[in-house]
Simulated assay, not measured.
Amino acid sequence: MPVMEVTEGEQQMIFGFRKCLEENNESQLKIVEETYFAKSKQTIFTKAELAKKWSCSTRLVSQILNDHEVKPVGKRGKEHEFDIEQAQAAKENHDKRVLRAHELSMKIRAM
Rank of each mutant, 00 (worst) to 15 (best):
M1D: 10
P2A: 06
P2I: 08
V3S: 05
V3D: 11
M4G: 08
M4I: 15
V6A: 10
T7F: 03
T7I: 02
G9S: 13
Q12V: 10
M13F: 13
M13W: 09
I14C: 03
I14V: 12
F15D: 15
F17A: 10
F17N: 12
R18S: 14
R18Q: 10
K19C: 05
K19A: 13
C20Y: 09
C20F: 08
C20G: 08
L21G: 06
L21D: 14
E22M: 12
E22G: 05
E22K: 07
E23S: 08
E23G: 06
N25Q: 14
N25M: 14
E26G: 06
S27G: 06
Q28M: 10
K30F: 04
I31P: 02
I31V: 11
I31Q: 13
V32Q: 15
V32E: 09
T35M: 12
Y36N: 11
Y36D: 14
Y36K: 14
Y36S: 11
F37I: 13
F37Q: 14
A38D: 15
A38M: 11
K39Y: 15
K39M: 14
S40Y: 04
S40I: 13
K41A: 11
K41C: 09
Q42M: 11
T43H: 06
I44H: 14
F45T: 01
K47L: 03
E49N: 02
E49D: 05
A51L: 01
A51V: 00
A51R: 00
K53V: 03
C56R: 03
S57E: 01
S57P: 01
T58F: 00
R59G: 07
R59Q: 08
L60A: 02
L60R: 02
S62N: 05
Q63A: 05
I64F: 01
I64G: 00
I64H: 01
N66L: 04
N66Q: 07
N66Y: 04
N66I: 02
N66M: 04
D67C: 04
H68D: 03
V70R: 01
K71I: 10
K71M: 05
K71W: 00
P72V: 00
P72K: 00
V73F: 05
V73T: 09
G74L: 03
K75Y: 04
R76V: 05
R76E: 12
R76K: 10
G77H: 12
K78D: 13
K78H: 09
H80T: 02
E81T: 15
I84D: 01
E85Q: 12
E85A: 11
A87R: 00
A87M: 01
Q88M: 07
Q88R: 06
A90D: 01
A90F: 01
K91Y: 06
E92W: 07
N93H: 05
H94L: 03
D95Q: 07
K96Q: 09
R97A: 15
R97Q: 13
R97V: 09
R97D: 14
V98E: 14
L99Q: 10
R100A: 15
R100W: 12
E103Q: 08
E103V: 06
L104R: 14
L104F: 08
M106N: 12
M106W: 05
M106E: 15
M106T: 09
K107S: 05
K107W: 05
K107V: 05
I108F: 06
I108S: 04
R109V: 08
R109D: 10
R109A: 15
A110G: 13
A110N: 13
M111V: 14
